[in-house]
């Protein structure tokens, strides 16, 4: 994607007896390379059972903790949980929050690869920069889908019901995946620019926390100060929470859902492109 040239020059004299995937098809290469790198990340996750357990258990704790902590916020005048059940209001919010928080760490993989020679080796190989980005994004997306379905399972078990049904769940999954892609791209780009674990985590926290609290993910912004409501209108985390919540309610207003998903998709594409561009800055520094 960011390669400076569309070289038509093929390496001369490919040795015999070598099975080569047709490399002329750049898209095919992008997909294949992304798949190899995604598979590597998934494999790494399975080899770290403690980390995997935390990844999966964390959203459950948030759901149950916030669910009890803020149980009575629905009683504040102006709070519009349609069924009057905070858990049902909170579930899509925790889904988005989980996607947001886990994907903020996406760039740490890059830092580890840079600290070793893995990143240099990848960059000196025919792997497209886009594939290195898509690899981390696809991995985050897979994690987010699994986390989202677990949260729905727990919420359902705890008594929450979602009149929006399957299409509501599908919109929630889509919104959480898009948030993941947006934030993971941002995290990747920051990793490539700052190249240091501490700086990445610091910046990532600095961005993620305000995004979370200046949104309707755990509280109805109608009970927040007016400025928060205004800021939230430009906050992708709010777009995602609002779209998911609307799609899960009865009598879904698709005029609320679809534009927000559209904005999220557009932003996700822009952010992934920026992350790919960040490789240029990184390569200038080495």
């Amino acid at each position: 994607m960011s390669a400076p040239t569309t070289a038509t020059l093929t390496p001369p004299g490919t040795p015999d007896g070598r099975t080569r995937v047709p490399q002329g098809v750049k898209v095919e290469r992008l997909v294949l390379h992304s798949a190899y790198l995604t598979a590597r990340s998934v494999r790494t996750l399975f080899r770290q059972p403690a980390y995997m357990a935390i990844t999966l258990v964390q959203p459950i704790i948030w759901l149950l903790l916030f669910g009890n902590l803020f149980k009575s916020v629905v009683d504040i005048p102006g709070f519009t949980a349609r069924s009057g059940n905070y858990l049902e209001f909170l579930t899509p919010g925790v889904v988005i929050m989980t996607a947001l928080f886990s994907s903020g760490w996406a760039g740490t993989v890059y830092i580890e690869d840079m600290d070793r020679g893995v990143m240099d080796r990848l960059l000196a190989s025919p792997v497209r920069r886009g594939a290195i980005v898509v690899g981390t994004l696809a991995y985050q997306a897979i994690t987010t889908v699994v986390q989202t379905l677990i949260i729905f399972g727990i919420a359902y078990t705890a008594g929450a019901r979602f009149p929006g049904g399957a299409s509501g769940v599908a919109v929630t999954v889509a919104a959480s995946v898009l948030i993941s892609v947006i934030i993971a791209s941002l995290s990747d780009a920051i990793a490539l620019l700052v190249r240091q674990q501490e700086a990445l985590i610091g910046i990532s926290q600095f961005i993620v926390l305000p995004l979370q609290f200046l949104s309707s993910s755990i509280i109805d912004t109608r009970v927040s100060p007016a400025w928060v409501r205004h800021v939230a209108r430009y906050n992708p985390v709010d777009w995602a929470s609002t779209a998911a919540r609307e799609a899960l309610s009865s009598g879904t207003d698709w005029g609320v859902v679809l534009p927000r998903l559209g904005f999220l998709l557009a932003l996700a594409c822009v952010m992934a492109w920026l992350a790919t561009r960040a490789f240029r800055t990184y390569q200038r520094s080495i």
Partner: peptide, 15 residues
């Protein structure tokens, strides 16, 4: 033509 070069080289970096 970085791409064409990359297919023909192996890099064993310092790290």
């Amino acid at each position: 033509h970085a791409d064409a070069v990359r297919a023909s080289i192996g890099l064993v970096a310092q790290k």
